[in-house]
C-alpha cells in the first residue's frame, strides 16, 4: 500500500480500469478477423457485432446489478422472462403498428411481474436467490410455452423496421442501448441507488448498519433485471421476425459471462457498465473470428468456455492480496 501515497497518472488510472481489457481483446479479435478477409468485410463484421451485442448488453445490465448485490445473487430467470415477454408482446401487438407502444408496456409488465415474483420467493420462502429464480424460471418458461404455442406471429412491420434499421452502418438499436448503458453507468456511480447496491455487495451487514435500505435496494435490482429481460424479449421478437420458444436460451450464460468478462467482480460490490459492451462485442467477435477461419460450432463453444474460465482465474489473481 506504499504507492497509495502518490496519485496515479491518468494513463495508469486508465490501465487500472477493469473494463479496458474487454475492449482491447475485442479490438484485437476484430483485427485478426479482418486480416483473414483482407479488410474487405470489416464494416459488416462491426455492424453485425453491434447488432447482436445489443441484446446481450440489455440483459447483461440487469444481471450485473443483481450480481453486484454480493455472493449468491444471480438471476437465472432471464431466459424464461425473455421468452415470455416476447411471446406475450407479439401476440398482443398482432402485427399492428398501432399496438407497438402497448406491446412494449406489456413486455415490461411481464418483466415486472416476474421480478416481483422472484423477490417474493426470496423473501417469503427465505431461499437463496439462485433457487428462487430457478424455480420461478420453470413456471415462467412453461407459461411462455403454453401461451406462445401455435403459429408464429410476425412482429408489427414498424417494430421490425426499427429494430433492424441502421444509420451509417450503425444499428439504431445499438445506439439506443449505448445511451441506455451510459444512463445505467450514471445510476451505478452517481446516484444513491448505485451506492446502495455497491455497499450491499461489499458487506451487507455494514450496509444495513450504515442505514442503507437493504430490502428495497435488493428488490429494485431483481425488478430491474426482470424488466430488462422483458425489454430484450420485446426487441428480440421484433428483430428476429417474431418470438420463438428458444429465443431466451443463450442469454442466461451470456448475461453472466458479460458480467465476468466485463471486469465486474462476481463476489459483488464492484461493477461497471462499460465492460458489458466490451465483453459483448468480444464474445460475438470471437465467434465471428472462429467462423471466418472455418472452425465449427464445437470449437466456438470450447473457446467461449475457456475464455470465461481464464478470465475468472486471472481476476482471482488480482484479489489474492485481500
Amino acid at each position: 500500500m506504499s504507492d497509495a501515497a502518490s496519485p496515479p497518472s491518468p494513463l495508469r488510472r486508465l490501465m487500472a480500469r477493469p473494463w479496458l481489457w474487454a475492449y482491447v481483446a475485442a479490438f484485437a479479435v476484430f483485427i485478426v478477423t479482418i486480416l483473414f478477409t483482407g479488410g474487405r468485410s470489416g464494416g459488416e463484421v462491426a455492424t453485425a457485432a453491434f447488432t447482436f451485442a445489443t441484446f446481450s448488453v440489455i440483459v447483461g445490465i440487469g444481471q450485473m446489478f443483481v450480481v453486484t448485490l454480493g455472493p449468491g445473487n444471480v438471476d437465472l430467470s432471464i431466459p424464461a422472462t425473455i421468452t415470455l415477454a416476447g411471446a406475450v408482446a407479439t401476440k398482443i401487438m398482432d402485427t399492428q403498428d398501432g399496438m407497438i407502444l402497448v406491446g412494449l408496456l406489456v413486455a415490461l409488465a411481464c418483466g415486472a411481474a416476474v421480478g416481483i415474483f422472484n423477490y417474493g420467493l426470496i423473501i417469503l420462502l427465505r431461499i437463496p436467490p439462485i433457487i428462487a429464480t430457478l424455480s420461478s424460471s420453470f413456471l415462467v418458461q412453461s407459461t411462455a410455452i403454453a401461451y406462445g404455442r401455435g403459429i408464429r406471429i410476425k412482429p408489427p412491420p414498424a417494430l421490425a423496421d426499427f429494430t433492424t434499421s441502421q444509420v451509417f452502418g450503425m444499428p439504431v438499436l445499438a445506439i439506443c442501448v449505448i445511451l441506455l448503458a451510459a444512463v445505467m453507468e450514471v445510476v451505478l456511480r452517481r446516484t444513491l441507488y448505485g451506492r446502495w447496491v455497491t455497499a450491499i455487495g461489499q458487506n451487507i451487514r455494514a450496509a444495513r448498519l450504515a442505514g442503507v435500505p437493504v430490502g428495497r435496494t435488493r428488490f429494485a435490482a431483481y425488478m430491474m433485471s426482470a424488466v430488462f429481460a422483458g425489454l430484450c424479449g420485446y426487441l428480440l421478437s421484433g428483430f428476429s421476425g417474431g418470438s420463438s420458444l428458444s429465443m431466451g436460451e443463450e442469454y442466461l450464460l451470456t448475461s453472466i459471462a458479460l458480467v465476468v468478462i466485463g471486469g465486474s467482480s462476481v463476489a459483488g460490490g464492484n461493477s461497471n457498465v462499460p465492460g458489458l459492451w466490451g465483453a459483448a462485442l468480444f464474445l460475438f467477435l470471437v465467434v465471428t473470428m472462429l467462423n471466418t477461419y472455418g472452425f465449427g460450432a464445437g470449437l466456438r463453444y470450447l473457446a467461449t468456455g475457456a475464455i470465461i474460465i481464464a478470465v475468472i482465474v486471472a481476476a482471482s489473481r488480482r484479489r489474492t492480496a485481500r
Binding site: L192, R195, Q202, L209, G269
Partner: peptide, 23 residues
C-alpha cells in the same frame, strides 16, 4: 464485518450515511 466497505475510498466510506443531502 460491521463497518468498512473494503473496496471503497475513504471519502466513499465516510459519506455513505449522508449521501441524501450531498446531491
Amino acid at each position: 464485518t460491521d463497518g468498512v466497505f473494503p473496496l471503497w475510498s475513504i471519502a466513499e466510506n465516510i459519506t455513505i450515511a449522508s449521501l441524501a443531502r450531498l446531491r
